[in-house]
């Protein structure tokens, strides 16, 4: 009986150890994915969002991008090299045209081709309703690059991949 008790305690200690290792020591891949989760959180909008929350979210979006970020999105005619501030203001304008908005990311493929650089391919799904009442449901594949600056990852490149070519 005593032996069983010790085995159970040992199992619990091992489980706690594994949990602690996963939670406390984040891998670089987890840190990269976290930036996407933050982008999803701050780009999304709930109906009736107040001005203060909106301003805070837009400010936070800008903090996720490197000083200069290259964007290639032919679907929305948004291609070029932009500063984090320009991206923030574009995000603010885009969010204003929606009454509610949800941005979700799926199927992450993260690679680290060189030190301080992460390349990510993923699927982005944007759903919501415009202020004019029109429903939006867009899905695109994205190719992104993130740069590590002072131990933090920042978006430096984003391209919308054309899956179906008209």
């Amino acid at each position: 009986m005593v032996r069983v008790k010790y085995i159970l305690i040992a199992i619990l200690v091992v489980i706690f150890g594994i949990w602690a290792a996963f939670t406390l020591f984040q891998s670089e891949e987890k840190k990269v994915k976290k930036q996407f989760h933050l982008l999803s959180k701050w780009a999304s909008k709930e109906t009736g969002e107040n001005t203060f929350v909106m301003a805070q979210k837009v400010k936070n979006i800008g903090k996720l991008f490197a000083e200069h970020c290259e964007l290639k999105a032919n679907v929305i005619s948004f291609t070029g090299r932009y500063t984090a501030e320009e991206i923030s203001s574009y995000a603010a304008r885009a969010r204003l045209s929606f009454s509610n908005l949800s941005l979700q990311f799926y199927d992450f493929n993260v690679a680290f081709p060189e030190e301080g650089l992460a390349k990510v391919t993923l699927t982005a799904k944007l759903t919501g309703r415009t202020t004019t009442g029109e429903g939006v449901d867009e899905t695109h594949e994205l190719e992104c690059a993130l740069k590590k600056i002072e131990n933090k990852w920042f978006f430096s490149y984003m391209e919308v991949v054309e899956v179906l070519k008209k």
Binding site: Y106, D107, F108, N109, T121, L122, T123, K125, T139, H140, E141, L142, V163, L164
Partner: peptide, 13 residues
């Protein structure tokens, strides 16, 4: 079924 970056979201065409 046409895939995007993975298998979670796909297009049915």
């Amino acid at each position: 079924a046409v895939r995007f970056a993975g298998n979670k979201v796909m297009l049915l065409k």
